[in-house]
Design a protein around this nucleic acid. Structure first.
Lengths: 117, 117
DNA sequence: CGTTAATGATACGGGTCCGTAACGATCGGG
DNA sequence: CCCGATCGTTACGGACCCGTATCATTAACG
């Protein structure tokens, strides 16, 4: 059972959530960072720098830097893979899970406000 | 009749659309710019720098610069208000309307793909 | 008029992000 | 054992964005 949504509803939803993010000062995350964060929290582990770069279609430094900044915010953590020490495994954090959950609630909340548009 | 959407659906939708934007290189727009663009195309004109700044809760230079860059991309245009030449009226463009429409279709398309999640 | 208020644009210093290229660490196969 | 391949990181130069402060232009009003 697909999720039915009209173009005008989609646009109003997109605008309102972005307005919320800007106003609450949570617009620190770029589109890339958002995609990375949600991939980490929605897709099955393990997540590596290379894997994320491939999924997003960007270069590895982009992932490394995004992990740096999101790590500073406490949203993710890195750990060396002991079975193959070349790899780095990206791990979730409590703060990151909360941030993702907050975003979901925001979208759900704003969607509910919109009647037939 | 509100738009019913579950948190997990919201997150998958948010992730997938952001992934699309990143992969197609349309992630040039920051969260602020997205909010500005959609405000211009969804809310009733006229739009001024000051009005947009107030709606977003940001300073005027943010709007000026966003209009500069979005103007370079052809998404919006500025015109002096002849009745009060201090004001600048932000106007829509064909390219901007197409970009907004494309975003809407993207969201609708991705939403449709998601079953009960 | 002249003064005050308001609008949008600009200058500046600081921060972040980008892609390319190079690097050190680690694995694996001959 | 060593050499190539792979992984993630860092260096570099350039571009963009931010907020504060300031500016020129225009309007409003005494």
């Amino acid at each position: 059972m697909p999720l039915e949504i009209r173009p005008s509803q989609a646009l109003r939803l997109w605008r309102q959530v972005h307005l919320d993010l800007v106003r609450d000062g949570e617009s620190d995350l770029s589109a890339r960072q958002t995609a990375i964060l949600l991939t980490i929290y929605l897709e099955l582990p393990p997540h590596t720098v290379r894997g994320l770069a491939a999924q997003l279609g960007v270069t590895k430094p982009v992932i490394t830097r995004a992990l740096d900044s999101m790590g500073k915010l406490g949203l993710v953590t890195r750990r060396r893979d002991e079975t193959d020490r070349r790899n780095v495994v990206i791990q979730r954090t409590v703060a990151g899970a909360l941030a993702v959950e907050r975003l979901a609630d925001r979208v759900v909340e704003r969607a509910r406000e919109f009647g037939a548009g």
